[in-house]
Amino acid sequence: MNKELRVFRVLAVALCVGLGDLAQAVTPQDLLKTYEAQSGKASSARGEQFFNAKHGKEWSCASCHENPPNHDTKHIVTGKVIKPLSPNANPVRFTDEAKAEKWFKRNCNDVLGRDCTAQEKADVLAWLISIK
């Protein structure tokens, strides 16, 4: 990658972190950096554990997305097809910050009964990025 492009990417990430919810992520890694800036270093191991655990409600993330979430699945109630969560299997995942936030909000409420914290989002996203 040439020097100008690297500088541009660094500035783009800084802009995403600086603008918070107003910025659109360019890559899943950019979004991860945004969450880490809000919460601290992400843990892929914690993300996998969080994804597979039930948190006081009937469902875990894996209830609908399965493990590993690198293939099409179906929602356990509606039967609607869910595209892979892993950005390596589905390159458009986590490239739109507003869309990612919408789905985190909806799914975290289904699984946890509350919004996910920035740390929980960072951990799950770090794990999803690692899945091939």
Rank of each mutant, 00 (worst) to 15 (best):
A100S: 13
Y35F: 15
Q29D: 13
L5E: 15
V26G: 13
A37R: 01
A89Q: 03
F94R: 00
T73G: 05
V10T: 13
R46S: 08
M1V: 13
E97I: 04
K132F: 08
E4N: 09
C64V: 06
E36N: 04
I129T: 05
S63H: 08
V77A: 11
N90I: 06
A62N: 03
H71T: 09
E36Q: 10
D21Y: 05
N52F: 06
A62C: 08
C64E: 02
Q29E: 15
N67P: 04
L31F: 01
V10C: 07
L112H: 11
T34Y: 10
V124R: 00
A14I: 13
A12T: 11
D115R: 05
T34I: 09
T73N: 07
A100P: 01
A42L: 04
A118R: 05
A62F: 08
N70G: 09
Q49F: 10
Q38N: 06
L31R: 00
P28I: 07
L125A: 02
G18V: 02
C108L: 08
L19I: 02
E101L: 14
H71D: 09
A98S: 14
L22S: 13
V81P: 10
A42H: 02
I131S: 04
K41V: 15
K80S: 14
T117N: 01
A37D: 06
C108H: 09
P69Y: 04
L32F: 08
V77N: 06
A89I: 03
D72N: 13
L125F: 03
F104R: 01
A89F: 03
G18P: 00
R6H: 09
F50P: 00
Q119D: 03
I76S: 11
N2F: 12
C61F: 07
E120D: 05
L11A: 15
